[in-house]
Design a binder for these strands. Sequence first.
DNA 1: TCTGGGGTCCTAGGACCC
DNA 2: TCTGGGGTCCTAGGACCC
Length: 425
Amino acid sequence: MKLYGLVDCNNFFVSCERVFNPTLNGLPVVVLSNNDGCVIARSNEAKALGIPMGCPAFQIKDYCNPSQVIRLSARHRIYCDLSNRVMKILSAEVEHVEQYSVDEAFFTMPYDDVQRNHDVMARLVQKIYKYVGIPVSIGFAPTKTLAKIASHIAKKHPRITDGVYWLVRPEAIDIILRRTVIDDVWGIGRRIAAALADRGIVTAAQFAQMPPTLVRRLFSVSTERTQRELKGEDCMSISPVTVAHSSIMNSRTFAHVITSRHEVQDAIVVFAKMCAQRLRKENAVADTVTVYIRGDRHRQDLPFYSNSCQIKLPTPSSSTMTIVHHALLAFANIYRDDFGYRKAGVLLTGITPAHSIQLNLFDKIDQSRQQQLMQTIDSINNHYGSHIVTLAPDDQRAQWRPEKSHFQKPSKTLRIYTAMLPDKT
DNA sequence: TCTGGGGTCCTAGGACCC
DNA sequence: TCTGGGGTCCTAGGACCC
């Protein structure tokens, strides 16, 4: 029998901050999203105070004395780098690793000699902590959905489990499912949980016993798959090869409501540029650009407007000039002067590998020139810093840029560390 | 006063074709 | 003169994830 393993970094963003600032250990710490808007990571101590995930920062006071809680602005570049280090160690130790998110990865393992494997995995947990400083939990089970539950148990009881929990025997699975509330099952969100609760289904075990056809009819094939996985039927395989993205998005909530057309337009240009840059990094092209703008949905005193516009490119492209040009056309289609804007974004879809596109002769000449220009700009920016060469004004202090007031003063360790990051050298 | 960003997958419904 | 249905493709929107 094959088992799925899931490695999950505990309270990942907070753990990353603690790597550089050990004085945060043992304290209630939260990491905040863009504009210091929402809580996106919590230390165990912050969880114990009752602060929920996704809680708006200004509501922290509803749960505890806010002065007890250390608030930090997110530093995603650093989290991404530490994530890579964790994944590298994992990949060296196990086979068929599939990174699922910045802080999680699935892998497979043959089901034999559990005691020996347990020791190997417990040593892996220690190794990751020793070399990267990030505490992780590992769960094993016959399906990915059950492995998720197993890793939660490992995380909850690190002392008893050494950070590794095996959810394999049918009797054990049975007991655990009876103790697992339906909301905690991977793939069951708020809406489905509420619909299930209306029918008196509140535990994973009760959900597993529902007729599959009913689950399918009420929800979707995905939910039925989740149910089958809970019953031990493997419905989601591992895809170790990194699958190309099917969309690339860049969007921001602005620090304030913006009423200037130029300001919003500048933001669109920056988002389009960043999208194009990522596209080239992934050696891909896109055939559709979507732009969306929207007002502030929380302000009752302002008229609300939200719209999007999708434009198909004449030929798939990754050129900043082409993508920015079409993003601006889309923007002009939907922008209205009589509203204020709080959020905007650019989305690229129809993504294919760059080598797969068919061009006519004139496109070929034009594209190859643009490609050379883009390659030159990318290589200069990679070498000297990301804003050395830009194709349009890129005001780093523009009004729309998010505010972050909880940045910690970089410690000496952090300064040395950031200096070591590849694109700063 | 202050409420994130970046993804994936599925479904329903419309357009179009034969 | 009257009358269909099945297949495919695309898109918008909803649900989920971290």
